[in-house]
Design a protein around this nucleic acid. Structure first.
Lengths: 203, 203
DNA sequence: ATGATGTTTGACATTTTTGTTAAACATAGC
DNA sequence: GCTATGTTTAACAAAAATGTCAAACATCAT
């Protein structure tokens, strides 16, 4: 295995990632991916056998990335409030670099579900992680730092407030006639707003 | 023009709509659409000339629908709070029947932007609508019913809290092992939660 | 019943996209 | 320099998807 080996393979994977998750071009052709990577199209077959295998690999990577992101919130030895602050920060930055990651995963999962190709895999693991997080949330609700509700509702609140403006970026940049800097500024402002929304208002 | 004319045309459009917006199959082939509509594939060409034209038409319809949905909030002669209540109700019901509508529109718009095929069209109109809504929001902020922030942030809060659980439905149904009824129940609960989140907490 | 009109169909042509293969190429070890 | 190894390329084959067309079909007015 020479140096070039992993290089080209990686270049292709990165190009695909960019097309899918940054540009949202979910049905990019092999030619488009090859062009974006600056390599011969047949190299996709050489390294990944088929278009599908490449797709699956990139998706698997994305899943792993996302899970890592989700787990980050637990890894820190901080009080709940600071953890949430950290999480929001990490999540927003990730989402800014890969705005279409979540949409892509949902689209993929959905199509697999329709075709009844049900990918179980780390399902159990995810559920365990979520249950753990639910426990934390419930204890915070007891403490009174956050409003009482079904834990999943809290998770949805948190993730939706973060994710929506990222996914909808092209629309809102356009309609509101903003440049990237202005948009980024709005997202910065947003961090505080989200914090104040998910925590109970101090009376 | 016989009865069958508009019938088949409509059947095809509905089938396409269903594939795109309900199942999330954004890159469905003409054959798949024809099968879903229960008609011969060539009829798509007969009625819509090309696959692309059909896509454009359905997207235009979707835009119109979405705009109507957005305008609904203004059409009622109610106080702000009740208007929001109505809006949430209508939006959630719409989103339940067409969960992929927004995602589809974003994906489409994004791809058009990348290819520099910039569809201006009713842009101005949308902006005017939004400005009007911004004015209302600002006046509510003055009154103190909602927290002070950039108006777009309020809009994002409202829409994200509504839209996310719909778009992510396949993932969460799966991970949390819920059936449609249970999921619907969570969405019902959600209406109140969203209301309490976007309005200032009574002290 | 006939013909005019619009609809539906299957056969075919074209285009687009993917996958394969053999030869050319590069490079490291001998 | 030569060979063994893995990499890259272009030419080709195969498959998938779209679009066209003429003939078959249905329906309605005359």
């Amino acid at each position: 295995m020479t140096k070039k080996d992993t290089e080209t393979e990686e270049v292709i994977k990165q190009a695909a990632k960019h097309l899918f998750f940054v540009e949202g071009r979910f049905n990019a052709t092999t030619q488009e991916i090859a062009d974006a990577a600056g390599v011969n199209r047949t190299l996709l077959n050489y390294y990944f056998r088929s278009r599908n295998k490449l797709f699956e690999l990139v998706l698997k990577d994305a899943r792993f990335h996302f899970k890592k992101r989700m787990r980050f919130v637990f890894s820190l030895d901080l009080d709940f409030r600071s953890k949430m602050e950290q999480f929001i920060d990490v999540y927003l930055n990730e989402a800014i670099t890969y705005p279409y990651l979540e949409t892509y995963m949902v689209a993929q999962l959905n199509q697999q579900l329709i075709k009844h190709e049900i990918p179980l895999e780390h399902e159990v693991e995810v559920r365990e992680d979520m249950d753990k997080f639910f426990k934390v949330i419930e204890s915070e609700m007891e403490k009174g730092t956050i409003e009482k509700m079904a834990p999943i509702q809290f998770v949805w609140n948190l993730l939706s407030l973060l994710s929506f403006p990222i996914v909808m970026k092209p629309i809102y940049k356009r309609v509101m006639d903003l440049d990237d800097k202005a948009y980024f500024q709005l997202l910065e402002e947003r961090k505080k707003i989200i914090m104040s929304m998910i925590f109970k208002k101090q009376v």
